[in-house]
Structure formats: structure tokens, C-alpha cells
Write a protein that binds this DNA or RNA. Structure first.
Lengths: 224, 224
DNA sequence: GAAGCAATGTATCCGTCGGACACTTGATGT
DNA sequence: ACATCAAGTGTCCGACGGATACATTGCTTC
């Protein structure tokens, strides 16, 4: 029957690449970047690649392993801050800039890199970069680690603000209206919202980072 | 047939309470507290209450609405910080203590209160409390809001550390071993980990808060 | 070149999830 | 006594992650 019309080789010969871990991971990252991490399912990845769902399991053992590889692939190479001049503060500002840039490209990263996990080597490399930027400041190892986590956390928080939008608060948003409508319950909040500045996101990001680095600077000065 | 053996009334007469929104929400919160937010399913809630899954939809329109109510119920009443003496810093420290306590009782709260949502009135009340604590400091409304978000973020970050464990880093953990095993790649990190202090969690929490409040203090002092 | 075999991909099944919809049941007002 | 109607039930659906058994392919070894 198939031979009858000689349709055998032509439609069968889709010259598809053999499946590979990196192809799977790249496809998964593309889906997460475009449609959010919750859109990443084994079926969706397989469909995008032109394979069946279970073929993926020949290359990754389960979805959480795939997610780990996705993370360590998406974070990319850690930044080299040794070339940034002007001391720890400039280095850390550059670190935050780079981290925010990567997380902006992959908005699912900050929400997925919480909790108890075994980090991949690249992710650990980012921590190494931040801790290294604080070498020679007189801070202890613990303090440098804590400062690094503080920076990660700050970027994570401000990122989820811009990505998913705690701009819910800014300007004429629904939240702002609700608050102003109940000014009796939220006197300070509605007064704060009535100010002239509408864009909360970038302000909050810069404000938080400045406060944080100021606090670090105070401690470092105290130590020297 | 049922009448045949007269089994009708006895097993039927479970004197169960009628279903209500608050009963559903309480059951859902109990499940989330005990088995994690991912264990909360409509079927599980219904089973715990002795009803069928679909009966829940008579009281809540869908799961995400239920989640919203769960959040605003679990956060509880916002703290009244007006009785805390000694100015903004003590107030904010108390605020963080209270928030951390609530989030410790409901470990799923910090992970679920991210992203774009319409807050409930109690959740907004917490923000009001923090903003109110900064009244009279000379900060603008925007700055007070940003500071409040900074505090929320800090608690969220440190909470997910203790709950899910970025104690992955501390002491003889798997991460610490991996890092020390590749000291060539992570020189600063492995040096920082070789210090005498094992317990990173509480240290990091207090360290971060102190830095943050120091940074705020510097700005407030500059304004006055 | 033919036979055998291991690797790779496929088809099918399972249990669980959120949710739609039509049904029964018991209380109530007239 | 009867119609109404809200509350709860049973059944179905598609999508999900994952297990298992089967088909296919290409490479090695006589």
C-alpha cells in the first residue's frame, strides 16, 4: 500500500536532527521565555521539536532534572568583575546590572531559583563573582556571603515587580483606586500614592539598591 | 433494594456541617500549612471536608479566587505599630518580626504573594503599617513605599532561605562540599565557606536587615 | 552481505489535576 | 399540596507528568 504510490521516502525523510539534551533544553527555555514557565510541559517541548513526549525521557530523567539544566543554561556564564575599576561598590552595581539583564531575558529565572536546590556550576559562579567583589573589604566570609544573597534577593524582588507587575500600585492602577477609595482604612498609603510620581518600579529598584549599598558601605567603613 | 435491608437511614445520617466559604478556606490553609501549597487541590479540600469536589464551586468560583481568599485570610490582621516606642527603626524591626512570624506559620505565603495580583484588604493593611511607620521621617511617599517593599522583599528572601533551605550552603552541606571540591573555580566562595561559622540563615537574616535599616537611616539623617 | 543487537524513538496506558454540566434532594413559601 | 430553588452529586473532558512495552533504526561482527 505504501509502496503503491511510492510515498515512502519523501514524507518520511524529514531531515530532523536527532534529539539531544541541548536541543530539548533550548526548546524548553524558548517556551519559558515566550509563554512563561508554566507553559513548559513535556508534551509542548516534544511538539515544538517534532517528537513524541516520551522520547524526551531518553535524554532527561524527569522534568525537575530538565528544569535544573534549564536554569544553569539560562543564567549563562557568570560575569568577570575583575575588570571593573573603582572598588567594591562599582563592582556590585555592575553585578546587579548584569544579573538583572539576564533575569530580564529569562523572566522565569527569579521565581524558579528559590528554595532548596543543588545549584549548577554557573549559578554558583555568579555567587562567586559577587563574593569576590567584596574581597579586601574587611568583611568576614559569612558577611560577604550574606551580602551576596542580599543582592540576589533584591534583584529577585525588583524583577518580579517589573515582570509581573507590582506596578499594580503605580499611578491609576486598580490597587491605587481601591486604596484611595478606602482612605479611611489606609491613610498613609493613600497619601503616599497621591504623590506626583507614577513610576514606582525603576524608582523602587534604584532606591532599594542604594539603601542596601549604603548600609554595606557603613559597615565596611566601620571595619576599616 | 435499599429498603430491602433497611440500610437507608443509618449510614446516611452523618451530621455534617453545611459547607461554607470559611470552612473551605480554613481546610485549604490547613492543607497548605501541613503539606505545602502544591498539595492543595479541590479534590483534597473536598475530601478533607467530606464533600465532593464540585460542591466547592458553589462557594468559590475557581481555584485562583480561593487562593486569593486563602492569602488574605492567612496573613491575618496587620500589626498596629503605633504603640511601639522609639521611632521608625524599632517600629520597622517589629514589623519585620511580625511578618516573619506569620510567614513562618504559613510557609507557602511568601512564595505565593509574588507577581501581579490584586491584594486583599488585610494584605494592603500590612503595607499601610510599614508605610505609616516611616511617617515623619522626611521621606517622600514614593520612598516610603519603596522602603516598605524592600522590607517585604527581605523577609520573603530570608524566609525562603530558612523554610526551603539555602542552608544548602551552610556547614557540611552538599553545596559546600561541591564548592570546596572545585576550589580552583570558586576561590573566594570556598574561602568564605571555610570560615568558622556554620549557621548562615539567622546570620544572613539579621545581617541583611541591619544593612537595610542602616541604609535607610543614612538617608533619613541626610534629609533632616 | 547477512544476522544480531543495542540505542533511539513511539504508542498506549495510568492517576491526578481544574473545571463544565446536568442531575437529585431537601427545605421553604404560597 | 405543590412549585421553586439553592446546595450538593456524578460523570465527563482535556492536559499534565510519568511508566511500560513495543517498533525501528543503524552499527557491529561473523
Amino acid at each position: 500500500m505504501k509502496a503503491l504510490w511510492d510515498l515512502r521516502d519523501q514524507p518520511e525523510k524529514k531531515p530532523r536532527m536527532p534529539l539531544s539534551v541541548s536541543a530539548i533544553v533550548d526548546a524548553a527555555i524558548a517556551i519559558a521565555d515566550g509563554d512563561g514557565i508554566e507553559a513548559v510541559s513535556m508534551q509542548r517541548i516534544a511538539a515544538d521539536l517534532g517528537f513524541t513526549k516520551m522520547s524526551l525521557y531518553r535524554h532527561v530523567s524527569n522534568k525537575s532534572e530538565l528544569l535544573s539544566i534549564m536554569i544553569d543554561t539560562a543564567v549563562g556564564e557568570p560575569p568577570d568583575l575583575s575588570e571593573v575599576p573603582d572598588g567594591w561598590r562599582a563592582k556590585l552595581e555592575e553585578f546587579v546590572r548584569r544579573l538583572a539583564e539576564v533575569w530580564r531575558r529569562h523572566p522565569w529565572l527569579p521565581t524558579v531559583t528559590v528554595g532548596s536546590r543543588v545549584m549548577g556550576p554557573r549559578e554558583a559562579g555568579w555567587t562567586e563573582s559577587a563574593v569576590a567583589a567584596l574581597a579586601g573589604t574587611g568583611l568576614t566570609g559569612d558577611e560577604r556571603m550574606a551580602a551576596a544573597f542580599l543582592l540576589f534577593g533584591h534583584v529577585r524582588n525588583t524583577q518580579s515587580m517589573t515582570t509581573a507587575g507590582t506596578q499594580a500600585w503605580s499611578g491609576g492602577s486598580e490597587m491605587a483606586e481601591l486604596i484611595r477609595g478606602r482612605a479611611d482604612l489606609f491613610p498613609e498609603l493613600s497619601e503616599a500614592l497621591s504623590g506626583p510620581t507614577p513610576a514606582l518600579d525603576d524608582n523602587a529598584r534604584a532606591f532599594g539598591l542604594d539603601r542596601l549599598l549604603d548600609g554595606l558601605a557603613a559597615l565596611i567603613k566601620e571595619r576599616s
